[in-house]
Amino acid sequence: MPDKHFVIPRQDINREDFTSSIPDFNRRSEFLKTDMGYKCIITNIVRLTEQEKLFKLRIIDTLERNIFRFKPGQFLMLELPGYGDVPISISSSNSNHEYIELCIRKAGHVTSALFNLAEGAHVAIRGPFGSAFPMDEMSGHNVLLIAGGLGFAPLRAPLFWINEHRERFLNVNVLYGVKEPSQLLFTYQFDEWEKISHIVLHTIVEHADAGWKGHHGMITDLFKDITIDPETTYAVVCGPPVMFKVVCSYLDKLGIPMNRMFVSLERRMHCGMGKCCRCMVGSTFTCVDGPVFDYWSVMNLKEAI
């Protein structure tokens, strides 16, 4: 027996190991690779404001491009090799299967490096991740979209959806507040949307400049402009934490049920897959349980807003 060997053979992992839980985004012909990104080419970069740029991305591989589908409200991890990856909410229409648009603010280390890129550069995306706005549930109702600052970026995808399925909704109002007029994003789009689809935009700035002819004040001041029927209204709120508190409690007082108010939260994510725990809020993950939560869930989450 001493010459007998007891070497444990190496076992590779294979697709079958994951059959019970293969995530949608990894439905690939080859092997399950959770950390492998889809390679994209940046086809277009538009500077929107001093701090924000709109990046238009196209997944290079045809097969991968046909697999990549998302819902309004979901985000992806944008990878810039060598610098790292950051969670970015998708700002384009989910019916556009050719391109993905991302509105990015120069805030940290990865986004700063992204701002140095030129059109034609290759980056990678992982995802889509997270929860989405319940567009079907909202159908048949009035919709009130409320955005503060960069909070408009995640609302652009549901706005596209509403515009493409306009007949399913009653009144659609967008309340949009920023600090200064120069920070307004995507307002050019509303010319068309207001005319053709009757999606009404109300903007307000905190600090008006000489050229500004519109409203001046806080986002809550815009509520004077519209009538809200709490019985038939769904609200979607996205902006800085302080805005959630003010706006949501206002809507709550109006009588909009908490499960008809939706917010999109923001945290630093490292994995996007509910593993690293960096984006935990209370006992839920912003990346897999969120970023879209109904207000009732957020009320129940400690440290949420």
Binding site: L80, P81, G82, N116, L117, A118, G120, A121, H122, V123
Partner: peptide, 8 residues
């Protein structure tokens, strides 16, 4: 060195 379109 060139990287993703810009030079170090």
């Amino acid at each position: 060195m060139k990287h993703l379109g810009y030079t170090f």
